[in-house]
Design a protein around this nucleic acid. Structure first.
Lengths: 246, 246
DNA sequence: CACGTTCTACCATTGAATGGAAGCTGCTGG
DNA sequence: CCAGCAGCTTCCATTCAATGGTAGAACGTG
């Protein structure tokens, strides 16, 4: 009952507060935030107030807590993927125009593909929600495209998690998917996310020969035309990669 | 020389570190970060390390500091403007398709319009950079559209800053612009940002009659057709507003 | 290879962070 | 109309986590 009974630093607590928001939830009651972050109410209150004085959070009347506009602004202005997204956008628009499909751009984070940009198929309901969404490597074409071009060491480390295995997904299957993707130069996966769609993704390789992203499309099964899609994606991916150095 | 010689809390310092990144800069050296944030090198180092252990920052080899992917993810998943952007996106795409102009969406933050979403004109080079950009109220059509629909009190407070005045912009001029925008139901401004472009913006009013955003287009002077643009924008803005409650 | 620069680690000092308790506010149901 | 409740806000004595000067390591450079 003094400076941190729980043995964590102030920084830890700030992080816990920000991480307390469940995916897609923009607003939380103070007491709920305290619960979720595992902080005493008064501590949570103090932290939230301090952060909202700086605009990183927004403490409204009645204890409603939101992320602050200022935080959104700072992060989006200085985002680590800014250069990537800027380089990729024109090419993604080209693909959207030419193929009229949902186009997306993902980076590898841990054992997941993190989607950093997305254009919806023209005419469809826009689905910006999936920006900042994640998918496990082995269930997404983008994830496979990314992982299949990582170093042998990283791939081995990744595959280990399937080793023990309850059996749902075996290391062998995933290894096969990766090998196929590496050999073909693209990854494709049918009906995993949505039974009626097909995902195709290609690696984006920067000027230092590092695979920094995956460019992909999601198409209805009925419209699947690998011959048309893959070359278009690969061309775009090369164009993007040429502009990226790190 | 002990717990904070500078008299600021840990939270203050965390904010200073995050705010130290200049607009558009994604990567900073540790020593430069320490300078910019006004922190002793060892303190900056400790904070950055702590934050990067949680993924909010990314401390690379050689002291290169970036914002963390995890921070980007958290902020974009739980962004305070998520609902607004989701509601607006389909309408913005419609406008882009029909009018083929640069479409943007802004909210009011302080005395500035903060741009939260943007679609580039088809065929033009995509300019995602301006997302998370700011413009003063009185030099942007979006800003005028937003401010002209705020409460009398807020407008009065806003106009005060032009009172003392060196004379560059007078309160009278701004008041006139606001009055005109309020009366017409849209704001328009020619050649302020770029001499060859015209900006037009309309307010987005939610179901509680609060003006929560501005929807605008930027068109080349030569293609200016108010008669066509304003009704389209107003229709879209109403569609967006109908879906928003707070 | 010596020098300068920048990053990283250490650790005694001390004041900022902590959180229980009490007060406040607004709502709800009897 | 008011008692009771639930959640927000404030207060303050206690105490340990944060601080930053210093020293050392790792570069890069002339």
């Amino acid at each position: 009952m003094a400076n941190s009974a729980s043995g964590d630093s102030v920084v830890d607590r700030v992080v816990r507060v920000i991480e307390a928001f469940p995916e897609g939830v923009t607003s939380l009651q103070l007491s709920e935030l305290a619960d979720r972050s595992g902080l005493p109410l008064s501590s949570a209150h103090r932290l939230v107030r301090q952060l909202s004085e700086h605009g990183l959070l927004d403490l409204g009347a009645g204890g409603t807590v939101r992320l602050g506009l200022r935080l959104w602004e700072l992060v989006n202005r200085n985002s680590p993927t800014l250069a990537l997204r800027q380089a990729a956008m024109p090419f993604m628009e080209d693909i959207q125009q030419v193929l009229n499909q949902n186009v997306n751009l993902a980076v590898l984070d841990g054992w997941e593909a993190l989607f950093v940009e997305r254009l919806s198929r023209r005419g469809s309901v826009a689905n910006r929600a999936q920006i900042a969404g994640r998918m496990s490597v082995h269930i997404s074409s983008a994830g496979l495209a990314l992982m299949s071009h990582q170093s042998r060491e990283l791939q081995a480390e990744y595959l280990e998690q399937f080793a023990d295995s309850s059996g749902k997904v075996t290391a062998g299957v995933v290894r096969h998917l990766l090998a196929e993707a590496a050999q073909q130069g693209y990854a494709q996966l049918a009906g995993v996310v949505d039974p009626d769609t097909w995902g195709i993704a290609v690696p984006v390789i920067n000027s230092k020969r590092r695979t920094v992203a995956a460019l992909g499309v999601v198409v209805p099964l009925a419209e699947m035309r690998l011959q048309a899609l893959v070359p278009a994606l690969q061309t775009a991916a090369r164009g993007i990669g040429r502009q990226l150095s790190d």
